[in-house]
């Protein structure tokens, strides 16, 4: 490999990540397996979010990791490995969608907001501890159903930003969106989820009333 400046990993990337990548680059399959263990769950969830089809999501998962292995030399190390592989996975997932609707060009950003999705319908304070009202399974069911009800672009932005904890800039980089586009989609996603969850978590006796 040609000599090059040692890349500096982003401050919040796991400290061993660059080491794992360079070992994998040198042909160490075990190091690559560790990277897979770390990120496969999140990549599979992301692929499900976009394709909404288990079989397609599995294909996307495999293609993303195989492509990542093939092109490891292109990973610069100045962004997180996760951001890099998310970008590959998103491209693979979009290709799947394009194949499914063969005559249309599809981008994750295709559903243009009409403004209606920013309406706040439910305004009611929540129980102080909604988690106590529901079992863990019920809680997971409620959260999953609410997030599944969002458009793919909102679901994807929300998952990367608020569940996986990427920064707004990293989310923009991973999804090839501008920072303002990520912010506007994140706001809509948060408001829509808030609306859906309020129906379950509002304090008993509080009724929704019109807002704005």
């Amino acid at each position: 490999m040609p000599a090059e400046a040692t890349p500096v990993a982003p401050a919040d990337a796991p400290s061993d990540e660059l080491d794992l990548v360079s070992r994998a680059r040198a042909g160490d399959g075990a190091a690559f397996s560790l990277l897979i263990d770390r990120y496969e769950g999140r990549i599979f969830r992301l692929a499900m979010n976009i394709t909404q089809n288990r079989e397609d999501a599995e294909d996307v998962l495999q293609e993303a990791f195989l492509k990542a292995y093939e092109h490891l030399d292109q990973f610069q190390g100045n962004s997180k490995f996760y951001t890099w592989i998310v970008r590959i996975a998103v491209n693979q997932a979009l290709m799947k969608l394009r194949k499914r609707k063969s005559d249309r060009t599809i981008s994750l950003d295709e559903q243009i907001d009409t403004g209606e999705d920013m309406v706040v319908r439910e305004v009611a304070a929540w129980d102080p501890d909604p988690e106590e009202r529901y079992s863990r399974e019920e809680m997971n069911g409620i959260l999953t159903e609410a997030i599944d009800g969002l458009l793919p672009i909102y679901r994807t932005v929300f998952t990367l930003r608020d569940v996986d904890g990427l920064s707004t800039e990293e989310t923009a980089e991973a999804l090839d969106l501008s920072v303002p586009a990520v912010k506007s989609r994140l706001l809509r996603a948060r408001l829509q989820l808030r609306d859906k969850l309020t129906r379950f978590f509002k304090r008993k006796g509080d009724d929704a009333f019109a807002y704005m």
């Binding site: 769950g41 999140r42 599979f44 990791f65 909604p130 809680m139 989820l193 808030r194």
Partner: peptide
């Protein structure tokens, strides 16, 4: 307040697991 709580409840969501068979085929 409820938007802040919305973000918190999702942050507390269990990390996503991958089905065994999907993991095996990937490996």
């Amino acid at each position: 307040d409820t938007t802040k709580k919305t973000i918190q409840v999702y942050k507390g969501m269990q990390s996503c697991s991958i089905p065994e068979d999907v993991h095996a085929r990937l490996m």
